[in-house]
Design a protein around this nucleic acid. Structure first.
Length: 576
RNA sequence: GCGCCUGUAGCUCAGUUGGAUAGAGCAACUGCCUUCUAAGCAGUGGGUCAGGGGUUCGAAUCCCUUCAGGCGCGCCA
């Protein structure tokens, strides 16, 4: 009988692995193990240098479990036909007990099929050591800060912010699961013209609501939320500021307004299950002298000059299109200036990597910020800016009119209320962030009964239900160790096991590509194998041993589903 | 004019960073609830991967070019 212990021994003997546990838990055993085995065989065959070994899942299930094109890759450099290389490699791998078979396909693909015993042992590992199986220490405790949403507190969140929020949160969860130390931050633009304009817009509305004629600012903010703030102020201070000038009331109105807006935003995010670890205020950067220090720093390094009565930063020294003003001739700083200070502060906190998630409309801003980071003496790629493309909101195929000026737009809150938070998130997370997204309210709503998100969640709920049923029948499993997994002999069961064991492969690729949506697609696939299996075969039957084995399989599925759903920031309902 | 993103089935989107015969969901049509949940299952149809050229064993994927859509090119934020 195959035993895991023997397998470890095989590896120890063959490859002189001093720490086989690392080898197993570092990533997918199936993939990494295979890579290692091939590398060693190639070395034995006298091939040097050994190229990076590519392993992928074959296009047809019948081909095998995993495949490599390495023979083709090598063909040129060692001047041998790919088929010949493949044959030699397969030959040298023959002794390994984990392969049921190895096939060579034209022009030189090698297809590997694992033994069932190997699959069972890996499945057992998944169930027994789930934290090790799921937590792959790719990040090695590196500190990453992810800044996202950071919407100006001058209006409610819209759907575009929602996309950034869903993506940012999922990415944070993903990296955290991958062993990074992740901090999520929201940058509050509470200084500068925009919040002041908000204050003025509210001030005008305040006067109007008190029956005093006062012009709303030309380019000011409108919409019912402005009324809400103005009414809240009336409730708070009554007519205290009626008929006084904006100059004297400016601070109060501005502060009151943006703080109320910020509360709203926080509440919206909370209802979307998005949380942050830290908030950074722009005002605070000025107050604490961070902005001054940043400018001094740049001056010291000689990247600042004066022209036309303003101070300029030599962004062109680092590849930007033009130099940028950091102190205007009217004595005000630009938005960019505080942003330099902000990122300087971030860098000085000692993160290994900064990730900013921005709306794609800000892409033109990247070169100047990266220029600033380099001018401050940090490597260019210490900051990674991920762009999230725009969202077009439709209703029944027709664009919903969005006029910020007229205050007519659909807020994130309204969408969540109409469509539901999980469905909304799922729609965001089934797309690459850089693809333009069409969000049709009618489609999202109509589909909400048959939405893919429920398909995945339902699989988990179903499994819970199976376990309750098993309990009623008197089958309770305290320890899966004693379960005989070789009872799982159906092709569907082997498919499920293989799919589960591939989760770490998908996970790792999602981490490396910074693309949580790969998890979403994987979960749909897993659920798509489980549901038919459930339909065609009963888990709990009179055959107790078989029932126990199938329950173990269900347990493994539940572990992976839950892990994936949690990474995506979706709820995991126990029953539906 | 310059820069960034996108173009894949009727619709919305994936496509393992260059791999084998390009996939899923929705929509359409046909069946299945006396069973551990029908938010489920089984089946059918659907493609010039925007067009053209190139790179190589191999391209939806990389390079060039044309076309189409979106966004950006402030001493605004």
């Amino acid at each position: 009988m195959f035993s895991l212990k023997n397998y470890y021994k095989t590896i120890l003997v063959d490859f002189k692995y001093t720490s086989c546990l690392n080898f197993f838990y570092e990533s997918s055993a199936m993939k990494k193990g295979l890579i290692k085995i091939i590398e060693i065989s190639l070395k034995k065959l006298g091939i040097d240098p050994i190229p990076p070994i590519e392993i992928y899942i074959p296009p047809e299930e019948s081909f095998g479990d995993m495949a490599t094109p390495v023979a083709m890759t090598l063909s040129k450099s060692i001047k041998k036909p790919p088929r010949k290389i493949a044959e030699e490699l397969v030959n040298s791998l023959k002794d390994h007990s984990i392969f049921e078979k190895m096939d060579i396909a034209d022009p030189g693909f090698i297809n590997f099929t694992f033994t069932k015993d190997y699959l069972y042992s890996e499945l057992k590992m998944l169930i027994r050591e789930k934290s090790h199986f799921l937590l792959q220490n790719i990040g090695r405790d590196k500190r990453v800060q992810i800044e996202f949403v950071s919407a100006n507190p001058t209006g409610p969140l819209h759907l575009g912010h929602g996309r950034g929020a869903a993506f940012g949160a999922a990415l944070s969860n993903l990296l955290k699961a991958a062993g990074y130390k992740v901090e999520r931050e929201y940058y509050i633009n509470d200084a500068g013209k925009q919040v002041k304009l908000l204050g003025l817009s509210v001030f005008a509305r305040y006067q109007q609501l008190l029956g005093i004629e006062y012009p709303s600012p030309e380019e000011g903010y409108r919409g019912s939320y402005i009324d809400d703030i103005a009414n809240a102020i009336i409730k708070e201070v009554g007519k205290k500021y009626s008929e006084c000038s904006f100059d004297t009331a400016s601070d109060f109105f501005t502060d009151f307004s943006y703080k109320m807006m910020l509360d709203d935003i926080e509440r919206d995010l909370k209802d979307f299950s998005i949380t942050f670890d830290t908030y950074q205020s722009e005002r605070e950067l000025y107050k604490k002298g961070d902005v001054e220090k940043a400018i001094d720093d740049l001056k010291m390094h000689g990247f600042i000059y004066e022209k036309d009565g303003a101070l300029w930063f030599r962004a062109t020294d680092f590849g930007d299109d033009k130099d940028r003003v950091i102190l205007k001739k009217d004595g005000e700083y630009t938005y960019f200036t505080s942003d330099i200070a902000y990122h300087r502060k971030k860098m000085r906190k000692g993160y290994d990597k900064l990730i900013n998630i921005w709306g794609a409309d800000h892409h033109g801003y990247i070169p100047r910020l990266k220029a600033a980071i380099q001018a401050l003496g940090y490597p260019k790629d210490s900051l990674k800016v991920l762009l999230v493309q725009m969202v077009t909101l439709l209703r029944g195929g027709k664009p919903v009119q969005m006029s910020k000026r007229a205050g007519e737009f659909v807020t994130l809150r309204e969408v969540i209320e109409e469509v539901g938070p999980d469905t909304t998130k799922f729609i965001f997370l089934t797309r690459r962030p850089d693809s333009h997204l069409e969000f049709d309210l009618e489609v999202a709503k109509v589909r909400s009964s048959e939405n893919p998100v429920f398909y995945v969640q339902y699989a988990n709920a179903r499994i819970n239900s199976i376990f309750s049923h098993a309990k009623e029948k008197g089958i309770v499993i305290e320890d899966f160790n004693g379960v005989d997994l070789s009872m799982l002999s159906l092709p569907e069961e082997h498919r499920l096991i293989k799919n589960l064991l591939l989760y770490p492969v998908i996970f790792e690729s999602a981490v490396n590509a910074l693309e949580p949506h790969r998890i979403t697609f994987y979960l749909q696939e897993l659920a798509g194998i489980f549901h038919p299996y459930y339909h065609n075969h009963r888990v709990v039957t009179d055959n107790v041993e078989l029932s126990r084995a199938r329950l173990a399989l269900c347990e493994a599925i539940r572990i992976v589903l839950k892990d994936g759903l949690e990474i995506l920031g979706l709820s995991v309902p126990e029953r539906m």
